[in-house]
Amino acid sequence: MPKKGNKKNIVLVSAILLFSLSLMTLNVKQEKGATFLDSIAGVILSPFQSFFTQAIQSVSDSITHYFFLVDVARENDRLKLEIQRLISEKNQLTEHLSSQKRLAILMAHQDDWEKNVVVASVIGRTATQWSKVVIINKGTQSGLRDHLAVITAAGVIGQVINVGLNTSKVLLIVDGRSAVDALFQNSRVSGVVVGMGEDECQMKFVPNTADVKVGDSVLSSGLGGIFPKGLVIGKVSQVSRKKQGLFQEITLTPSADLSRLEEVLVLLP
């Protein structure tokens, strides 16, 4: 007969398992919409995330310009304070200007898509090591919903998977759960770009007979209904063909730098 302590342990572990598995089951069955918990967590944390992101940008700008300032200060100490004041102003203006430039480049694509777009800023990343997800500062209030394509001027970055009131989660194309129907720009051979949870993707189901070279561009095919046809996904960085097997093993480098995302475009239907 089990002791009282053992019994308590079994009950505790069972409760944790049961609770977690119930959450997983609910999550898998619930196909659309943010869960209540997601929305609450997003609303509470988004101001702090915005604050931290802005602080990082400010510090980064200050460090960059500090090195520039050192030489100037050596030349003329008397002007140091004045220069710092001007540099501080310049930092703000430079940041504003570069932000405007990025937005202008993004908005230039609005005509290309012939779609409504929402410009959003990346305010955070996923709270776990293993998911490749970013958080943007737009949600249902801006007309966002699940399964909308998210891009930058460089190309596809992912899709919206979870929409809150003022924030949304974007599943990046390198996440293991991401799959985008794609084709090669030159040969028009199609395949599926899947994430591997690392910095690169793989293009699957490309026949061994297809002519694929390193550097070939891969575009979205338009199938699947999320990504419009012709968006740049990435370039082939590695190809290997096995003697046995039907398909090639192709590694892609995403065209957008997913580690330095600042502003993104969400394509509305």
Binding site: L21, S22, L23, A41, T126, W130, I161
Partner: peptide, 12 residues
């Protein structure tokens, strides 16, 4: 809730 992954994995 903040990971965008499967709910329950980190809870477990």
């Amino acid at each position: 809730s903040l990971s965008g992954g499967l709910l329950g994995v980190n809870t477990l």
